[in-house]
Design a protein around this nucleic acid. Structure first.
Length: 274
DNA sequence: CGAACCTCCTGCGGGC
DNA sequence: TGCCCGCAGGAGGTTC
């Protein structure tokens, strides 16, 4: 479900309610996620939350001295919501952190592809195996047109797979890959090395524009994404191609094409994209 | 090394 | 109405 804009929306929703507060209680209702929820999670009871941040699609919660960090990933179907501790748990509410008598952060994930990990004190998050090899943040200055050109040089893979490769740039998931390529006028199935420098420059800008705009709109709600406050994202109203198979292109009315690339549904306009 | 494919899991919508 | 099938926004792992 969540791509980078949805994770960023979640971060912005939970951060003001968490920073500076203490974790009063840790509840693990279902430890069987992509990796087991570690038993050491119980030990963070009483820790203060010093900061909440995002790296790629991971959320990082920095705890007070000696308590280390929490590393969360929402997988395909995960979400974080702030609830009243008195509210009934929903099915698939796997982990809950009670903040005070009126606030509890709940990790909800029907498919259980998500993660709740505890990094002990002294382990730098950036050195964690899941984060160590990640490429630049798409909205940071380190993601440059030259970086994208280098990543595509001599690369035989199709461009859609290259921009979804987290070693090249993080946070471009299946929705925004199709959308970015549409805005850049590039077909998703073209070999990366066949795309000219100027067109890759356009793609670089399109990735930043699409992700930035999606964050401003609170993410994309297709079926079920809700922010931490329960509100849907509005970017789906600006999707040009994703999930629009056979529907008319919003620019030229040509029916949108669909094909599976890298085991994932892929959409493009055969007229607007070459 | 890269590329192709597989895997984890539940829910939902469409077709019959 | 109810059942079955295919598909779903991620990403690490395996195999060649």
């Amino acid at each position: 479900m969540p791509e980078l804009p949805e994770v960023e929306t979640t971060l912005r929703g939970i951060e003001p309610h968490l920073v500076g507060r203490r974790i009063r209680e840790v509840i693990v209702r279902e430890p069987r996620l992509r990796q087991p929820v570690p038993a050491s999670l119980a030990g963070i009871t009483g820790a203060r939350i010093d900061a909440v941040s995002r790296r790629a699609k991971y959320l990082l919660i920095r705890l007070s001295a000696r308590h280390g960090h929490l590393l969360l990933h929402l997988g395909m179907s995960g979400s974080l919501r702030l609830s009243d501790p008195g509210d009934d748990f929903r099915r698939h509410d796997h982990v809950a952190l009670t903040i005070n008598s009126s606030r509890q952060l709940r990790f909800h994930d029907p498919r259980r592809f998500g993660l709740v990990l505890h990094l002990p004190h002294g382990e730098h998050p950036a050195d964690h195996p899941l984060l160590r090899h990640l490429g630049p943040e798409p909205l940071a200055g380190s993601f440059t047109p030259a970086h994208l050109r280098d990543a595509c040089r001599n690369r035989r893979a199709v461009i859609k797979l290259v921009i979804m490769d987290s070693k090249v740039v993080v946070g471009v998931g299946n929705i925004y890959a199709s959308e970015s390529l549409f805005r850049a006028g590039i077909r998703p199935g073209i070999a990366a090395r066949r795309i000219s420098g100027p067109r890759l420059h356009q793609l670089h800008q399109a990735i930043r524009d699409v992700l930035g705009e999606a964050i401003r709109q609170g993410g994309t709600t297709l079926r079920d994404f809700l922010g931490a406050d329960g509100q849907p994202g509005y970017f789906s109203q600006q999707l040009f191609v994703y999930d629009r198979r056979d529907e008319p292109c919003r620019v030229c009315s040509t029916p949108i094409r669909h094909r599976v690339i890298g085991q994932r549904s892929t959409y493009w306009c055969p007229t607007c994209q070459k």
